[in-house]
């Protein structure tokens, strides 16, 4: 299954990636431009995630972190932010509908793809939450940095 999926992803990578990136950028108020640092980081990370998918040992934690690190501080709710991990499934269906019979994947492979993305969504949720917690941790740390000398005195 992995080889079939890998092959399929390889040949459709560009199209999937483009659509996926568009979805991600469109989360932002007035669709984030391609030539922005945010778009650059997202496109790099999404590509890493996608190319890691077909491989058996897939460790895309770092890329996942890069994506959620950006999403976790944006002005939209988590449900919207994480929705981008649901998009690939729709994109895949979309592509399947447009390709010829020969190019389609078996149901088994499709389901493998989908379940892989389900798992990825949950992993992304973990990662997103880690970054949210980091924000609160930063607030606490900043408070104590600011009061550094006072805290030192009370400790002494």
């Amino acid at each position: 299954m992995n080889t079939v999926l890998a092959k399929f992803l390889e040949s459709n990578k560009k199209a999937i990636l483009q659509q996926w990136l568009d979805c991600a950028l469109a989360l932002f108020p007035e669709k984030m431009g391609y030539s922005t640092p945010v778009a650059m980081v997202l496109s790099g990370a999404l590509e890493k995630i996608l190319s890691g998918l077909g491989k058996s040992e897939n460790d895309c934690q770092e890329a996942l972190d890069d994506v959620t690190r950006i999403l976790a501080v944006q002005n939209f709710p988590p449900s919207k932010a994480l929705s981008i991990f649901l998009e690939p499934k729709l994109i895949l269906r979309d592509i399947m509908m447009k390709t010829t019979v020969a190019g389609t994947l078996t149901q088994e492979v499709q389901e493998a793809f989908n379940s892989r993305f389900d798992r990825l969504t949950l992993e992304a949720f973990d990662s997103y939450m880690r970054h949210r917690e980091k924000i609160y941790q930063l607030k606490v740390e900043e408070g104590s940095r600011r009061m550094y000398m006072a805290l030192r005195r009370t400790e002494a």
Binding site: K31, D94, M97
Partner: peptide, 28 residues
């Protein structure tokens, strides 16, 4: 196609109705 995959027409309808960002209608 399996029963799990929605029909093309359904998807198309959903795509048309959903205020999708892909359609680039955010600049009106």
């Amino acid at each position: 196609m399996s029963k799990y995959v929605p029909k093309l027409s359904d998807l198309k309808k959903e795509f048309d109705e959903k205020p999708s960002v892909l359609k680039g209608n955010y600049s009106v």
